[in-house]
Design a protein around this nucleic acid. Sequence first.
RNA 1: GGGGUCGUAGUUCAGCCGGUUAGAACGCCUGCCUGUCACGCAGGAGGUCGCGAGUUCGAGUCUCGUCGGCCCCGCCA
Length: 595
Amino acid sequence: MAEALSALGEWERSDYAGTLRSEDAGRVVTVMGWVHGRRDHGGVIFIDLRDRSGLVQIVLDPERSALAHAAGAGVRLEFVIAVRGTIVPRSPETVNPDLATGAIEVVGDEVRILNSARPSPFPVDDAIDAAEAVRLRYRYLDLRRPRMFRNLWLRHRLAARTRGYLDAHGFVEVETPVLTRSTPEGARDYLVPSRVNPGTFFALPQSPQLFKQMLMVAGVDRYYQIARCFRDEDLRADRQPEFTQIDLEMSFLGRPAIFRLMEGLVAELFAEADVAMPPLPLPVLGYAEAMARFGCDRPDTRFGLELVDCAPVFAGSGFKVFADALAKGGTIKAIVAPDGSQLSRKDLDDLTEFVAIYGAKGLAWIRVNPDGWQSPIVKFLSDDERARLTAAAGLVPGNVVMLVADTPRIVHDALAALRLRLGAKLGMIDERKKHLVWVTDFPLFEYDEEHRRHVAVHHPFTAPVEEDLDTLERDPLAVRAQAYDLVLNGTEIGGGSVRIHQPTVQARVFGVLGIGAEEAQDKFGFLLEALASGAPPHGGLAFGFDRLVMLLAGEESIREVIAFPKTQKAMDLMTEAPSTVDARQLRELGIKLDR
RNA sequence: GGGGUCGUAGUUCAGCCGGUUAGAACGCCUGCCUGUCACGCAGGAGGUCGCGAGUUCGAGUCUCGUCGGCCCCGCCA
């Protein structure tokens, strides 16, 4: 049967459903929203009405209003209704303590059914048991769930607070182009063909990097933008092809002042999210120290299990695996689990399998039992080595030592991952804790074995540390960058640098990167000219806004804080983008497909 | 590009060692029910077991391929 729909008419909402309280008793209210639940007792009908603020119970009594009751009998889940009625305190035995509005209910006098709804493909409820593909296909229903709206709301509040803070500190919000130029270096670009200039392409920005530097040259002095960025790379739980950065740049400020301003911003955002902020100033960790202690440049500092350098222990070792690794310029490091009784033989086998993901060919382990060492490798170790290892790692009975011997890259990757996994498994990570740390003094370059050239660790516009300038060409890998990341519980939430503001330095860095004068002029001519036009010293950074919201919302995936995210194959299941296009569109663009 | 995992009713899942009629709960439909809030009671409809090959007397179940979701490695300045 077709239920009779009503027009909204002259009705206006008086209150959000979830905000009603005992103090409202006696008021006549008009509430509007979705039918979240319906309990029809034949006589009286209860309807849970949901809007973005929460739920309130509507009571429809045939003796009070036969019309309202009849309307209520016709509604189904997710119908859109408006109810006019009176707030009445519930009798004590019918109070629902699980509901914010549970002390009262709305006794309905008139019900307008504003729209019907087909049966929902999944319950619009915070129970998160619908498959993500189904949620994404019907994202508009998924977003009706209170948890999802809470995330959207938090995101909005954090953006608003960001604008407020930056405005108060003299930052100017400037929009930069989304249709821009493809540049070498960095991630794969999303390309947009130009119809007017056949055969040429715009790129969507990986970040507004060069534009914000131009704004500094322009004298804007302090710039920010909550900017959409695009990178055509493979996705992860914390990576989407389009994502949002709080992008900032400042002139005439060095690192200390930049840190101070940014710490102030982060503190505001933590406050907005009602999350305890660590004391300021935040700790600063050098890249070299981070790598040595944690094996990675974004350490989770909430727990120990730090790496132990065992290369000196096994110098000249008779154990072939260790000796070979060292001979080839590799290293040996270890993690010590304090209480080995928490790790079964099977656990150790699983961990061996786990580190293999990162290229480690094995995980040597040693149980330090009170009556001696138990280990597959103990027979290969000399008494000296055992003594040195005991001293280096501070071993006491009960410990389990896990060692990886390989190239530094593999040792660090494997042990950094192992450390996180062990920390979780051994219950050493306090989820309530929030640890923020700056990581600084990154190398300016690293060597790309595949392409046999130096590449920028951060980006090609990052300033070298001044006292390292002399060795730029002679020993590029030893040059430190004036770059910094902000790390929250092991996740990089922001990163930036002091930029090069002198054209000569920029040209030298391009040189190390293998970008000759001609190519530099072709691709970055505007930058070099701008730097030569009175560029002030400047620097800045960008926060990964999605990640920050995710962490402050307590979510595990960035998709939970993005209204319409894409799947791991970069598809939008709701609109079914990307899609093929008409032959005519391609013809206009001068594009022929070869598959 | 690679590894792992999942795919059965609208949804979440079960389905043994391959065995002939594929189940449950919630949702949906019909009827009953005046204080529920996971309302209750009675009845009913609903299935291309992701898709395609193969093995077999017989495949939801085994094999191969393929498509898709998620996690990870590579990649992501």
